[in-house]
Design a binder for these strands. Sequence first.
DNA 1: TTCTTGTCACCTAGGTGTTAATAT
DNA 2: ATATTAACACCTAGGTGACAAGAA
Lengths: 220, 220
Amino acid sequence: NTVLEMKGLWDEFNELGTEMIVTKAGRRMFPTFQVKLLGMDPSADYMLMMDFVPVDDKRWRYAFGSSSWVVAGKADPNMPPRIHVHPDSPAKGLHWTKQVVSFDKLKLTNNQLDDQGHIILNSMHRYQPRFHVVYVGGKDENLSSTENFKTFVFNECRFWAVTAYQNHRITQLKIASNPFAKGFRDCDADDCSVADVLNNAQSGTQRRPESVLGSISNRV
Amino acid sequence: NTVLEMKGLWDEFNELGTEMIVTKAGRRMFPTFQVKLLGMDPSADYMLMMDFVPVDDKRWRYAFGSSSWVVAGKADPNMPPRIHVHPDSPAKGLHWTKQVVSFDKLKLTNNQLDDQGHIILNSMHRYQPRFHVVYVGGKDENLSSTENFKTFVFNECRFWAVTAYQNHRITQLKIASNPFAKGFRDCDADDCSVADVLNNAQSGTQRRPESVLGSISNRV
DNA sequence: TTCTTGTCACCTAGGTGTTAATAT
DNA sequence: ATATTAACACCTAGGTGACAAGAA
C-alpha cells in the first residue's frame, strides 16, 4: 500500500486548480511527489518510477475573466511519454519503507528535444502523475514483466502544465508554501506568512486553513 | 583496476604533509577521494566502500619551529574502525564504470559518540584511506565472503587528522584549490589565484606548479 | 601550552517567481 | 492577444577557514 505525503497541501492546490511550471532547462514539481510505502518484502528488489498521462485530449486556456480553465481545442501532438526512475532504484523493500520516498529530482520540461532525461510535457495541457512500484525479484528473476508491478494514481495530484502561472491564487499558494519562494512573501515570520497569504488567496471562501498549516508544519 | 582522480592535487598536498579537519559534526575530505574504475563485470553487483587505518601507532605534534611533524607519544586508544559504504551501493559494474566514483558524502569526525555514521578518527594521528570493491554476485550469491573483494591503497592520500590546520602551507593550498574556500583567496580571477598562492606557498621550492594547474583545470 | 569548540562571513550550488523582451 | 524565453534578485542548503573563547 501507498500513502501520499503532504496530502493536505495537494488538496489545497487541487481545489484551486494546480499548475506546474515547465521550462526548457527543467523545473521541479511543487508540491514534490512523496509517498510512504507499506507492505513491501524487505529483502526483495524494487524499482520505483513515475510517469505522466494526459487527463484528456484537450488544449486548455485560462480565462481571466471567469478565473477558470476553458477548453481551447484538441490536444497538441506529444512525444512518446518518458518514465522517471527514482535514482535509488533498484533497492530493497527495506530501503524504500524505512523513510519517505521523495521524487524531488524529477523535473518537467517543455523542450521536445530534451536530452537530460526530464519529463516532457505540453504546456497548456492537463496531466495526471502516476506512481509505479516494480518488483524485480528477490532470488528468482524469471517471472518478470508479467503481473509484478503496481500503479498508484492520486487524483489530487493532477495539474496543468504552464510556462507561466495563470491563476494568481496558485502563485500565492506556491509563494506561501514553497521555501524557495520565501523571497516573495509579504511578511517575515514563518507562521504568519503561510496563514495570511492563504486567507488572502481564498478571499472569504475560508475553507479549513488548518489543513494547510498541518501539512506545512511537517516540513519545518 | 582503479585510477585515483586528481592525483596531481593529492601529490601536491602529500608533499607538504596532508592534513584533514575533523569536527564534531563531521567534515568532508579535501581533496575528495575519487576514482575511475576499470574492468568490472557490467552486469554484476558491487559494493564500494572506504575505511581508514592508522599509518603508525604514534601520536603526533606539529613543531612550528622546524615546520614539521614530530612524534609526541604512543597512539591514543581508538574506536573500532567504521566503514563508509558508497551511497550508490549496491550497483552494477556498468553504473560504477560509466563515470567517476566520488566519495564526497564521506565525513570525518573526532566525536567518539557519533551517531550519524561518520568516520571516527583521533586528532593528531595519521591515517591511510583504503578503498574496497566488494563483489556481491551476479546470479549466484553463495561464494560471498571469501575472496571476492579487492582493496586499493593510494599512499599519496594519507593525512594527519587535525582539529585546526597546523602547516600554514596546507591552509594556503586548501584555500587555493577548494572552491568553497574561495572567500579567503587574495585575488579575484580564478586563474590567478591558484597559481599565485601556490607559488607563494612553495616560496622558491618551485616544483612543477603545472601539475597542480593541470589537476585544478579538471574541476572547472 | 596545546588543543578543541562554536560562531561567523563568505563562498558554491541550485530552486523560486518576477519582469521585460520576444515569439507565434 | 497569447504564450514563451532569458536574466535577475532573493531565497534554501550546506561547505570553507578565521577567530575568539574554552578546555585539558
